[in-house]
Amino acid sequence: MSKPKIATTSLAGCFGCHMSLLDIDERILELAELVEFHKWPINDRKSFSAQCAVGLIEGGCCNEENVEVLRTFRSSCDVLVSVGDCAIMGGIPAMRNMVPLEECLQEAFVDGPTVHNPTGAIPNDVEIPLLLDKVYPCHEVVKIDYYLPGCPPPADTLWEALVALLTNKPISLPYNLIKYD
């Protein structure tokens, strides 16, 4: 039987959760024994060519492309996990949720004290995905099966959770892996 496939992506995140995943250090070899990395930032594969067992989502949804990617992950992965606070709650990017979108753009591209923009235009290329009215946590856009909180979740938390998921065993996270103060 072939190894189960997993996929990961970073939406409106900082890649910190992916860095934390790399922090499992040499255990990544063990992980490679267990799974095949089908689509993730390391191989930069653009689209799914097979159904995956597990998808890990970092970051929430701040633009239409994030939504599209997330929906593709949902239909291409059996189990979807929100990883980290941005995926779960919107995180730092969601701080803009207090401010209307137009004001955000105005401040970022026109009025900000360090902005040099003689034309005063807000960038508008067809390649730029349209921003959403606010940053959404992933579970408000698609159904999410599991949540791994943390900013980022420690490597050991990711490791324990993935191994439990892939070996079909109940997860047991010791207290120090799920406490955040």
């Binding site: 492309e65 239909s75 979108l101 137009e102 067809v126 959403l132 009215d133």
Partner: peptide, 26 residues
């Protein structure tokens, strides 16, 4: 399809469409 019925993409991009004056490609 695992989508949340509470989320409406066209509603969510409506403001941006208004600001930049082009339609969503998704």
């Amino acid at each position: 399809d695992g989508r949340q019925p509470g989320f409406d993409l066209s509603e969510a991009v409506a403001q941006a469409v208004n600001i930049v004056g082009r339609e969503s490609t998704h």
